[in-house]
Structure formats: structure tokens, C-alpha cells
């Protein structure tokens, strides 16, 4: 189901527009003609098998990779003109993205993402205190403010990274398989927190995940990528779809589905 069909009838302006994006690593095409819109209030699960291009698509949206063809618009601006990155919060893959031996406190991690933070803000204990504490309170980590990030559990670390993303007051949160290697109970709490942010703060959320089962009750849109957009629709439609039934039959393994 192409994106345009799913969005037909919507009057609001998308926060993120992906238009006909192509990407290839060397000569291997990993994304082909992908169209996708993300609106305010969306909780979008981006699913697909390993190597399907989910992370590549996220990195293109975040300007970490340059598409071979196609266009990205963020907040109605072309990607090359977009400057206000504080509107987008990014939480990278948990397992790989930081060195646990790095001597940095929770306070310092969160303050890093304050665009207005200066060196002296890191040097005093009052370092943008209100902004940092407020962001940590949202994720329930304010009591760990002076703890070294590497000493926290995987779930707690991810909460701190959400606080870091929230401190710049974003409108969209993008998470790339944030709970890899985290136990099921912690995952569930983590996704409850995301749902709260989505409902109470109206944050649009894009979640790259394999764990479609655990987030089922929170999401309102699903996009399945397997080099091209093979499914895109509301969560309700997704649950009724042949595609979903096929997924269940295959034990949650994603399949190639041509339109």
C-alpha cells in the first residue's frame, strides 16, 4: 500500500516526508522508491527483516546518509535547508553506540543535547539544572543525575538517552531498535514510557523494531520495509491484513511482499 493512498484525506501537514528515496551500498540497492509521511501524533513502527534498509532509511532522514535519488522534507523544509535539529530527538541502537567506560555522568549526557549549553554549564553543578532535571523527571531518572552512565542498567541507560533527546524539546523522536539486549519487562516499561510521551506530549515517534508483538498495543501506524515499502497503513488495518496473518504464520519473520 503506497504512502499516498494511506495519507489520502489527511489535511494536516506531515512533519517528515520521504519522497521516492533510493539508496545503494556500492552496487547493492537497499532502498527503492520509498515514500513515507510522518504526522504529528503518529506512533509509527518501522518493521522489516535484517538488512531490509530500516536503519538506512532512518539515517537518510537524519542526514547521516545521502540518498542516491529522492527527496526528504523535515518540517516542510528541504533536508539541505533544515537547521533546527533540536526538533528531532534521536536515540541510536543501544548495544553499539557508546563506550560504557566513558566517564560521563547522567547530568552531562543530558546537557550535551542542549544547544545553548556552554563550557561553564558543564563545569558547575547548577548546569542548566531545570532543563536537565525536567527531562530526567519525565523518564523517572532524576535520582540518578550524578551517576556515571556506564554503571546503569541497559534499560536505565535508554531512559537517560530519551531524556537527552527530550531536553531539546523535540517534536519527533526517532528510535533505532532501542531495546536490543534488554529484558522483556524492561522493554515493556520502556514502550509504556514512549506511549505516554506520544499521548500526553503529542510527540510523533518513529520506532525501528523487530519486536512487533510487544509494541502492538501502543502503535497507530505500521510501515514495513524490505528494500521498498511493502506495507504501510494504520495499526487497525495492519492487524486485519493478510500481511499480518502471513507474518504470524511465519513466526514474525518478515516476508517479501510485492505490490
Amino acid at each position: 500500500m503506497p504512502s499516498a493512498a494511506v495519507d489520502k484525506g489527511r489535511l494536516d501537514v506531515p512533519l517528515i516526508e520521504v519522497k521516492g528515496v533510493y539508496y545503494s551500498y556500492n552496487h547493492l540497492e537497499v532502498l527503492t522508491d520509498v515514500h513515507l509521511n510522518v504526522y504529528s501524533g503518529d506512533f509509527l513502527a518501522l518493521i522489516g527483516p535484517n538488512g531490509a534498509g530500516k536503519t538506512t532509511l532512518i539515517k537518510i532522514i537524519l542526514k547521516l546518509l545521502k540518498p542516491k535519488r529522492g527527496e526528504i522534507r523535515l518540517f516542510q523544509q528541504k533536508l539541505k535547508d533544515f537547521k533546527d535539529w533540536s526538533l528531532i530527538g534521536y536515540i541510536p541502537q543501544k548495544a553499539t553506540h557508546f563506550d560504557p567506560l566513558f566517564p560521563v555522568s547522567v547530568r552531562e549526557v543530558v546537557a550535551m543535547n542542549l544547544p545553548q549549553a556552554r563550557w561553564y554549564d558543564f563545569w558547575t553543578k547548577k548546569m542548566k539544572e531545570e532543563d536537565v532535571i525536567q527531562a530526567l523527571k519525565v523518564v523517572g531518572m532524576e535520582n540518578y543525575i550524578d551517576e556515571r552512565i556506564g554503571y546503569l542498567s541497559g534499560g536505565q541507560q535508554q531512559r537517560v538517552f530519551i531524556a537527552r533527546a527530550l531536553v531539546s524539546q523535540p517534536k519527533v523522536l526517532i528510535l533505532d531498535e532501542p531495546t536490543t539486549g534488554v529484558d522483556a519487562l524492561t522493554q515493556e516499561k520502556f514502550y509504556d514510557l514512549l506511549a505516554k510521551l506520544n499521548k500526553e506530549k503529542g510527540l510523533a515517534i518513529i520506532l525501528v523494531t523487530h519486536e512487533i508483538g510487544i509494541i502492538n498495543r501502543h502503535i497507530n501506524r505500521v510501515a514495513c520495509i524490505n528494500r521498498r515499502l511493502v506495507y504501510h497503513g494504520s495499526h487497525a488495518e495492519f492487524c486485519q491484513s493478510d500481511f499480518f496473518r502471513q507474518m504470524l504464520a511465519e513466526g514474525h519473520h518478515m516476508i517479501w511482499h510485492k505490490h
Binding site: L62, K63, L64, K83, W85, S86, I88, Y90, I91, P92, H97, F98, D99, F102, V104, E108, V109, M112, N113, L114, P115, A117, R118, W119, F122, F161, R164, S168
Partner: peptide
Amino acid sequence: IIFSFRDFLFATFDPEAAQVAG
């Protein structure tokens, strides 16, 4: 180092997220 402190710290700790933060 003083005037680039936040940039150096963020890019050293988490280069990808720092890039996204501009």
C-alpha cells in the same frame, strides 16, 4: 577546547547523535 567544549564532548561520546544534533 573551552569554546568547543560541548561539541568535542558530544562528538566524542556519541558521534552519530552529535551529528544529528547539528
